[in-house]
Nucleic acid binder design. Sequence first.
DNA 1: TTGTATGCGTTATCAG
DNA 2: CTGATAACGCATACAA
Lengths: 338, 338
Amino acid sequence: MVTIKNMADMLGLSTTTVSNVIHGKTSEVSQKTVARVEKLLEEYDYVPNISARSLTQNCSRIIGVAMKCRKDKYENMIADPFFGELLGAIEAEVRARGYYIMIYTADDIREILRNVLTWNVDGLILIGMLHDDFVQVKSRYKKPMVLIDSYAPREVMKYVNIGLDDERGAYEMTSYLLEQGHTAIAFLADNMEGVDYVRYKGHQKAMEDHGQRTQEKDLIIIRPGMMEQESSLREIWEMSKDYTAFMCCSDYYAVMLMNYLSDHGVRIPEDLSMTGFDDNLMSRIVRPALTTVRQDVTQKGKLSVEYLLGMIQETEPPEWNVRLPVELVIRGSVRKIG
Amino acid sequence: MVTIKNMADMLGLSTTTVSNVIHGKTSEVSQKTVARVEKLLEEYDYVPNISARSLTQNCSRIIGVAMKCRKDKYENMIADPFFGELLGAIEAEVRARGYYIMIYTADDIREILRNVLTWNVDGLILIGMLHDDFVQVKSRYKKPMVLIDSYAPREVMKYVNIGLDDERGAYEMTSYLLEQGHTAIAFLADNMEGVDYVRYKGHQKAMEDHGQRTQEKDLIIIRPGMMEQESSLREIWEMSKDYTAFMCCSDYYAVMLMNYLSDHGVRIPEDLSMTGFDDNLMSRIVRPALTTVRQDVTQKGKLSVEYLLGMIQETEPPEWNVRLPVELVIRGSVRKIG
DNA sequence: TTGTATGCGTTATCAG
DNA sequence: CTGATAACGCATACAA
């Protein structure tokens, strides 16, 4: 590996001059010298050492992507279609802007924080963080951050969030189901915080606006591992008999359930209508194709990077709480009744 | 951010002593000093600066994951279920071993190389590389490398490869199809190099061993974009009328085609049997579930990291050409005929 | 237009 | 047991 010093020695120049040429500060260097240096640069295919640069400039050109993943839920988060697409979109945009990406996944937020600090990351994209985690990161990491899909209370701390109009998405889906004559609707969610909670609220609101009431028993919480457990699936199957529609918080749950149920003789959508959320690859592959709420995951990733890099270049973000639009995608998994 | 020097000053010690405590070289330091230093370490939650460390030690603790991706094929490679799972598995293992991962995707191998060199990556995992690319990398990058799914000619250059028993997988699948009474089989591949070529060879061999011949027209090459193009799909549909089975080189193609065809009235498997390769998430989701060849992608990723880290620690790899086993998974997309 | 000197945070060598 | 000091590769303030 050639270093600046190597080359300076070869040319009988100082490192300063070589460095200047490398950085295009050619106004301060004579034409002739520039040519000589550039020739050598080419010849040896000089590549700067980022560690050294990072040390002097106190910036690393690394964008950290931190994902808190509950070990009990994911053993391979990146394999999830949603995260895969999101990560891919982030990677593409970061690369296009001349930065690098480093992924930090961990159960423990302190481990993530340690990594972020040790690499002196220039900016951070936080995925799947709850409020407490965010507070902890914020207290030690002082550079720009963007959260994705966060619903941490904004009163406590100002932050940029790139999210979705989750409430509206759920509202529209519920309205659609009601229009199709469904009133016995179960809502299936991961938990009752963050995104899922807001979607549930949208669902509730639509129900109320249409003169329907929601009951606690109509809310089915999918606990980790349930989708792989025969007994839990059977339980859900039993429950399904009380409803005409299952409204799921994610395509993944919708698709997994749909397959389990139809494999056990439940006809979709004749016996039970199903809807998802996200419009993943899966929703298009499954038959009947899944009626779902589309979000533009690639756009989400891209925008996160744009905002983050904007902040790194010291401009205020144009918006602190971005809610990307959402669109109802009607396919074949809902039937009209009555 | 506290530095070693900061702390040394506070304690009236030298950086050497503090550094020694940090690295557990406590045999050279008095109990009392150790305690004092550790207290401060704790108090300020000292985090080392990796750039500085990298500079002195000439190693970065970064494992590079380089993926050459043809722009015309992938706009988001990580979103592909296969790469997503592979990358996730690599990430998990790298993290468990105390290393970090950096992803380099590019169309141009020289860009990848530049990044690898600039970060002084300790080891490299190469995915989707053809022989020429590998030669180019090898000529400039002198640290350990592991290739995944490579079929670069071994005579030219010795290298570690973690791959699959592709030939056998295809052989078994073809044998299975023949047993089920199929002889009019089309083979659908991406191209005729690397993995796909070897799978095709396995297919050919099985055909011959069973007294069948393969003809050039029975080999259908899926060009980039074809899966999204109505006209191409229609063409394939037309072709399908001459066959009783489509044997696809990947689950992705199998699933996409299966859906297109069944949406157009072709009954799977009554009118046409289909098989895939990989045993992705998709193959389990689709109905009828896809008969396919299973590979353990997670194992592939994990093993790659194990081999690579072994080499970084200067031990010879136990094996230069690993061919992971493969398993026929019989589901519902193939019917028995005759 | 070019060169000298210094510092970034860490580790390593060697001397006390 | 502890401490100077140099070195890693690069960028920059300042000097010439």
